[in-house]
């Protein structure tokens, strides 16, 4: 029978997949998408806890997380566009301006 555990397992697996992506990929955009996946997995855990404990606070937290994530994505993508104009590349290994 699926209970709270079932949702938490999906949530942690999704977080692990996002972490895997952050470590594995070199493309800044895909890296950013993996970060979004990790944020989303936390959302699922919060909603599951909120539902099973019969309290609304978790849902409100998710509301705020979605707001902050939208703002963060907008700013992050603007930075990525500015970075691409400077460096002509999105690969992490090419972004070494601060090195030395």
């Amino acid at each position: 029978m699926l209970g709270l555990q079932g949702y938490l397992i999906i949530s942690t697996l999704l977080f692990a997949i996002g972490f895997f992506g952050v470590l594995l990929r070199r493309n800044t955009l895909v890296l950013y998408m993996s970060l979004e996946l990790m944020l989303n997995s936390v959302n699922l855990a919060l909603v599951a806890f909120s539902r099973y404990n019969n309290i609304m606070d978790g849902n409100l937290f998710v509301f705020f997380i979605i707001t902050v994530a939208a703002a963060e994505v907008a700013v992050g993508l603007a930075i990525i566009v500015a970075l691409f104009r400077k460096c002509r590349s999105l690969m992490v290994q090419d972004l070494t301006r601060l090195h030395n």
């Binding site: 909120s50 979605i66 994530a69 939208a70």
Partner: peptide, 23 residues
Amino acid sequence: MLDAFFLAILQVLVYAGAVMVLF
């Protein structure tokens, strides 16, 4: 499935809609 209907709609509109279109 967790009865969070408003958040489900918000997820589709904001994440699947706005954020991914931005990407």
